[in-house]
């Protein structure tokens, strides 16, 4: 079957694009690994999305999904492995082996957590190393844990972990802390130990993590911290591998778009939200960008369909 539009991703940008596309009567398919994107990994409540004074990422995601499903739209829970340009549109292949065809595509695949890339990290994923405090935090009751990354997301992770863990450390590479003052004050209140100038060298353990080794960048000394959990919060990287050949990238590996209509360098291929080089990464911005991309795709399909 030939769709008018395929949307890749189920975060705020994808859901908003889906709602707008369906309401424009575009025959639309949305393919997503799951709904909510990074929003559901947030360790603290969302307090800046209009209409909701305070809501958890999971609750907001469920509202998004419910709203989307009210519309006439096909939904596949699957991951996309490749997008190809063919005459008259695009082929979209999924890891399940299914293949779909459409006149236009919107990429809203968001971003994945950025890994540390140190020895021990990969082998201990799920065995003490985590990229999702909201998911795995509750499993570290009465344990000692370290959060790597002293930005706001690192502090938010540490603050949420303090309610489970016996001891929480924050390890930051640079000499200064960049998190907001309100987060720093909370961390102080909860006896979270902040260590700056810390370059992570290795994560060690037997079956599960038992320590992290970092180098104090001032004294050059290697220091071992006995922790059973390491939560990595050093930012994110755009999830774009499936569209590599069709788009241009910014220096941060984000998909470059025309800010006016969200089009990439390939006509008919649009992108929206955190996967793009849009200046700010916010839920409300991602939703707005998804809407822009859907309206631009509609215009494109009408003119080229």
């Amino acid at each position: 079957m030939l769709y008018d539009l395929i949307i890749i991703g189920g975060g705020p940008a994808g859901v908003a694009a889906g709602i707008y596309a369906a309401r424009q009567n575009l025959n639309t398919l949305l393919i997503a690994k799951s709904f909510g994107g990074q929003m559901t990994r947030k360790s603290v409540d969302i307090e800046n999305y209009p209409g909701f004074e305070k809501i958890s990422g999971l609750d907001l995601m469920q509202k998004f999904e419910k709203h989307l499903r009210k519309n006439k739209i096909d939904i596949e829970i699957d991951s996309v492995s490749k997008v190809e340009k063919v005459s008259g549109g695009f082929y979209v292949s999924a890891t399940s082996g299914k293949q779909f065809q459409s006149k236009a595509v919107i990429v809203t695949s968001g971003a994945d957590p950025r890994p540390l890339e140190v020895p021990g990290e990969k082998e201990f994923i799920g065995k003490g190393v985590s990229y999702c405090t909201a998911c795995d935090g509750p499993l570290f009751g009465d344990k000692e844990v370290a959060v790597v990354g002293g930005g706001n997301s690192g502090f938010e992770a540490a603050i949420s972990l303090h309610s489970y863990a016996k001891k929480v450390y924050i390890l930051e590479f640079s000499p200064q802390i960049k998190a907001d003052e309100i987060n720093q004050k909370l961390a102080q209140k909860y006896d979270i130990e902040v260590i700056t100038n810390a370059a992570i060298k290795e994560i060690k353990g037997k079956d599960f993590v038992d320590s992290v080794i970092y180098q104090d960048r001032k004294s050059q000394k290697l220091i071992t911290l006995n922790v059973q959990g390491v939560f990595v919060e050093i930012g994110s990287q755009p999830a774009t591998s499936f569209a590599k050949d069709l788009v241009e990238f910014s220096e941060k590996d984000e998909i470059k778009i025309d800010p006016k209509n969200n089009m990439t360098k390939t006509p008919g291929l649009f992108a929206a939200g955190d996967v793009t080089d849009v200046r700010w990464k916010q839920i409300v911005i991602a939703a707005g960008e998804g809407c822009k991309a859907a309206l631009s795709a509609y215009e494109y399909i009408i003119n080229h369909g």
């Binding site: 799951s34 709904f35 909510g36 559901t40 990994r41 958890s56 999971l58 995601m61 469920q62 829970i77 999702c132 909201a134 998911c135 795995d136 935090g137 509750p138 499993l139």
Partner: peptide, 13 residues
């Protein structure tokens, strides 16, 4: 756990 998105997706599935 109540806060893990893939848990919700799995149960819904």
């Amino acid at each position: 756990t109540p806060t893990c998105p893939y848990c919700v997706t799995l149960k819904e599935f």
